[in-house]
């Protein structure tokens, strides 16, 4: 390499190292504007205040036909659930029972959640295939199976907010830092922390663990 070309290389490197940096907090101009049609295609969420509900309506009766056809294979004809698939109806009054049955009627605080979820994720394996009217009808049927509306009910965008969910008042925001304050700033005991200890339960008795790994024992 000649002396002059070395000089040129040096200058080029200096220029490369002096690349302008972006100021923190400044806009980069990366990406592009989202078009209204694009936002409309993806923005299908529905909020408890009704924001996002599409125009449309559906009856309990139509919902029953649709449910039997598209949903009952997993959720059962009466939304009672098949096998381990979710139970969608019943269970009201069991939230303090030994085995609570959490369903749309017994547990879900907002009706919009049912509409939103069915619209975005159901039927399982064929998501977003239902029309707005079909979704209203299936939600109406599920409300009926949960004894929240009568057999002749027609759910629509207009009357959606009039439906009251039975368990809505039972939810409150995380209060662990107050309700479980005693878990903080304790000085943990290090010696003679309890008089005696005894085993009260064993996992092996239940025998519900899948096989995995060599559990044969040979101590050396």
């Amino acid at each position: 390499m000649s002396r002059s070309s070395k000089v040129w290389l040096g200058l080029a490197l200096a220029a490369a190292l002096a690349l302008p940096a972006f100021a923190q907090g400044g806009k980069t101009g990366l990406g592009r504007s989202a078009l209204p049609e694009e936002i409309k295609a993806w923005d299908i969420d529905v909020r408890p205040d009704g924001l996002g509900l599409p125009p449309g309506k559906g009856s309990v009766k139509d919902g029953e036909t649709l449910f039997l056809e598209r949903c009952a294979a997993c959720h059962g004809e009466f939304a009672e659930g098949v096998g381990r698939w979710p139970v969608l109806a019943g269970g009201q009054g069991t939230m303090m029972a030994d085995r609570p049955e959490k369903t749309i009627g017994s547990f879900w605080p907002d009706l919009s959640t049912a509409f939103d979820y069915i619209r975005r994720a159901m039927p399982y394996g064929n998501a977003q295939s239902l029309t707005a009217d079909e979704t209203y009808a299936i939600v109406a049927f599920l409300l009926n199976m949960n004894n929240i509306v009568k057999d002749d009910f027609v759910l629509s965008r207009e009357n959606f907010l009039t439906v009251k969910m039975p368990n809505a008042a039972a939810f409150y925001d995380d209060d662990r830092e107050k309700a479980e304050k005693h878990f903080w700033n304790r000085t943990p005991c290090m010696t003679n922390c309890k008089p005696d200890t005894r085993i009260t339960g064993r996992a092996a008795v239940l025998d519900v663990t899948p096989d995995g790994g060599d559990k044969s024992i040979k101590v050396e």
């Binding site: 969420d45 529905v46 909020r47 408890p48 205040d49 939230m95 303090m96 609570p100 959490k102 749309i104 547990f107 879900w108 605080p109 907002d110 919009s112 959640t113 939103d116 979820y117 994720a121 039972a170 939810f171 409150y172 925001d173 995380d174 209060d175 662990r176």
Partner: peptide
Amino acid sequence: QPWQQREETSKYTDLLADGRSRRFTF
């Protein structure tokens, strides 16, 4: 405001002994 989606209402809420449920226990 929150959207109260399935995964923050019917799931991922903590049902307590008194029958009430904590939500947003992030």
